[in-house]
């Protein structure tokens, strides 16, 4: 299994944990404070999710790369698969941005706008990971 495959799997798992953790915090806050979602203080958890999730991913990426030190790390195939997978994931994220824009024009609360961006961005990263693994296992179209 290549370095990229390993980091991709780790990234997916971390992403899932982060996503669930964020929503756990939000739901718990909504229930204990008896608030509707839009009134929950969501910015803190969101920022924490991005920063902590990002930091954990960076650490694991570093560890896996260090484990594979000395071997050739990124070649043309890795680069191509990475770009292909990222553009596949970007599609979903783009949909999220469009939905967010329309929500903004409809004056929807920023909580939902942020939620849409966050969720569809996360799903996009899942697509990215899935396409990456598939490309390594079964080949790229």
């Amino acid at each position: 299994m290549t370095v990229t495959e390993r980091t991709t799997i780790v990234g997916s798992v971390l992403g899932l944990i982060t996503f669930i953790a964020y929503w756990t915090v939000i739901i718990v806050r909504a229930l204990t404070d008896d608030l509707p979602f839009v009134d929950v203080e969501w910015q803190g958890p969101m920022l924490a999710a991005i920063l902590v999730g990002g930091a954990l991913y960076a650490i694991s990426y570093g560890l896996i790369s260090w484990q594979a030190r000395g071997t050739r790390r990124s070649d043309e195939r890795d680069y191509e698969i990475q770009r292909y997978a990222e553009s596949a994931g970007a599609g979903l994220a783009g949909l999220g941005s469009l939905a967010a824009l329309i929500m903004l024009t409809l004056d929807v609360d920023t909580f939902w706008v942020a939620t849409t961006l966050f969720t569809l961005g996360y799903l996009g990263s899942l697509v990215n990971s899935g396409v990456t693994i598939a490309a390594y296992q079964q080949g790229m179209p």
């Binding site: 967010a100 920023t110 961005g121």
Partner: peptide, 27 residues
């Protein structure tokens, strides 16, 4: 493949702006 970067930039940027409670006009 060369221009998809705009999409994650938009999504992440908008998310950060929303977190900072910037006016919806800017977002």
């Amino acid at each position: 493949l060369r221009t998809y970067w705009a999409t994650p930039v938009v999504a992440l940027g908008a998310l950060i702006l929303a977190m900072l409670d910037v006016d919806t006009f800017w977002i």
